[in-house]
Amino acid sequence: MTTAPRFRAVQLLLYGGVGLWSAFVLMPIAWMVFAAFKTRREIFTDPLGMPQTWTFDSFERAWGVGLGQFMFNSIVVTTGAVFIIILVSGLAAYAIARSTSMWMKLLYLLIVAGFAVPNTAVIVPLYQMVTAANFSNSLFGIIWVYAAYGIPFTTILFFSFFLDFPRELEEAARLDGCRPWAVFFRVVMPLSGPAIASAAIFQAVFIWNEFLLALLLLTQPDRKTLPVGILQLQGEFTSDWPAVMAGLSIATMPIILIFLLLQRSFVRSLAGLGK
């Protein structure tokens, strides 16, 4: 083909563009990891170079801030909130999708309306309510707040999934002797795996990274989640940049690793927001 050389040049250009953006994305992350291994002096004298020796000293210092505790708190809060969101939204969406009553449609619209309310806009009363109920610095308390802000979108997601769910399977199950609960738990739930995984990943990413509510509601050091906890690195190590970078590496690497392992599910899940 006569167009081959031109075609190759265009390909090269396109690869160059995508490669450039990838480098831009990777550089800060790579720099964070390298800086964590540098000494304080190296950071000043040779900001762009590689570390001279690979020691884990700064990681030890950073861990001392309580990163383990923060991570544990994040895991507890994320797991708890995602579990509630999936269960509560799943039941609600299924009931609404299988109902023909006008009332249920109205309830659905009400829940959906919650999707539009950003927590940034209602933090003042939210803070006062949670404090008044003595739920500040309580992981159990913030789990419910997070659940609330995840339920509307998850309900929308599940609702459209259940609408598309083949009705015949449920009918076949009823003829096979299943009561309504059994239809839900023996046929609908086992087949909702991908939808549940999608919703769970989506909510987990958001809750794991949530900052504002955690900043306001979890002030006690042993109750902080990771996003709030790592903020402490800055204050703790005023000029110990390697320690800050080590702390950030510890905080971000697990989620990056999980993402790399499950990237297909992550991408599918988050791209679902565009539907």
Partner: peptide, 29 residues
């Protein structure tokens, strides 16, 4: 209710449970 009528139905698009083997599909009831 449908499960007490002693009827079985064959659906147009089969309605087999995708998460069960053929054996489990047939023995589910």
């Amino acid at each position: 209710p449908p499960w007490d009528r002693g009827v079985a139905m064959v659906f147009q698009n089969y309605a087999l449970y995708p998460h069960m083997s053929v054996r489990d599909n047939m023995g589910f009831a």
